[in-house]
Write a protein that binds this DNA or RNA. Structure first.
Lengths: 220, 220
DNA sequence: AAAATGATTTAGGTAAGACTAAATTTTACA
DNA sequence: TGTAAAATTTAGTCTTACCTAAATCATTTT
């Protein structure tokens, strides 16, 4: 049976937090889900007890997803990213505005609806932030992008993805012209603070690691 | 604060059941909401105790909506009907398929989303079933339609609205060519059983009261 | 008018999913 | 290595919205 909205949210966050290969901690999950750590422990124990289990869990060791949990998470993520893409393409939302709306819609659309928007959009590979969209058979495509922070003076690339859910930051980047699909060139690198000076379009900006670590590019 | 999904459902059903001017009974509400009568009593008492109260309620006398309750109900109904219209126009759903999807989406869309689809659709007056869409300031437009059951031999009209949530019935009518905006003529009337023989497009059908009472037309 | 029937309400219970406070485990560091 | 701090878990509550069973009210029939 279809997991509840709460469970879908837990699975999605666990997926995101474990993308680095490490189990997700109770604390980190609590912060991401805007919930107290004690509530996370309770829910995790429940998810581990489902059959089939949705998470792998050892007390005090953090959680990871089982195959079943991963499938459920990718389903939600696919919904989220398709919906964002669709809102931008058909309702004129800008890419920094769609997150909240998608966050609610992702839990209530049918599989039929998912198929229809995927088809209407031509089965897109990335959402408006540049995030990869899981395929219909729930595989996450390979990510061939590089963090902007890895580029040095005179290297250039095309922005593929902005990884952040911080609306203020996204709006700021939008104003700087740093949006997915924009070509970008590093004109200076400061080895002290790792700041990059980059030009995108006609604009030049100096960016710290907190930003260059969230922008992912295809190296030219 | 925004009412819960359950409360929105209760208010919507109370609105529908009181359109005839009569208070809604516990039993009828329970049937419409797929819930036991005891649960309805509990919820109604809660809604009457809210401040401001959302319903008017006297034990054993049924419920009606207060002004605040009516506003909340019309908000949900507006969402529902705009969403149905939008699914049909932009995703190729047919008018007999959209109800379930709208039933879930209506509770989670933002006011911004509502405004965007209303604008994208050109602020439509009726949804794909022909139901009137409450205006942005939450007034229900006047209904100038007549039930098909009131027409007699040689009278004709245009179908404005099909009032039913029964998917099988809707599909059946769709197959008979009895859809909103279709012109229709009564070629025979049986005074015994009130059956009407009507032609719509090239097709002729004999319809009982259970159907002619649910089809609303603009008399020519 | 009393009894039977049906509708409604009351009382008490359950499941989800959150919370607080207290107990425990792990980690860090002096 | 012992202790303090941080992270985590346990235990016990709360709210929402449903349920069943039993009691009460209203209506119809006799």
């Amino acid at each position: 049976m279809k997991p509840s909205t709460s469970i879908q949210d837990y699975l999605k966050r666990i997926y995101e937090l474990t993308e680095n290969g490490q189990p997700a901690s109770t604390n980190d999950l609590a912060r991401e889900l805007n919930v107290k750590p004690a509530s996370v422990t309770g829910m995790i124990q429940k998810l581990a007890a489902e059959k089939p289990a949705l998470v792998e869990y050892q007390k005090h060791q953090g959680v990871t997803l089982t195959a079943a949990g991963k499938r459920a998470a990718l389903e939600v993520i696919r919904h989220h990213r398709l919906i964002e893409t669709w809102l931008v393409q058909t309702l004129g939302y800008s890419w920094d505005e769609v997150h909240e709306e998608a966050e609610r819609l992702e839990h209530v659309i049918s599989e039929d609806f998912e198929r229809r928007i995927a088809a209407a959009l031509g089965h897109p590979l990335r959402d408006p932030h540049g995030e990869l969209i899981p395929t219909a058979d729930l595989k996450m495509p390979l990510d061939e992008s590089t963090p902007l922070s890895a580029l040095r003076k005179n290297q250039s690339g095309k922005i593929l993805c902005i990884k952040s859910a911080d609306a203020d930051l996204l709006r700021h980047l939008n104003e700087l012209g740093l949006t997915p699909n924009t070509s970008i060139e590093v004109v200076d690198y400061s080895p002290f603070d790792h700041n990059l000076t980059v030009t995108a379009g006609k604009r030049t900006s100096v960016l710290g690691l907190n930003i260059t670590g969230r922008i992912f590019v295809e190296k030219k």
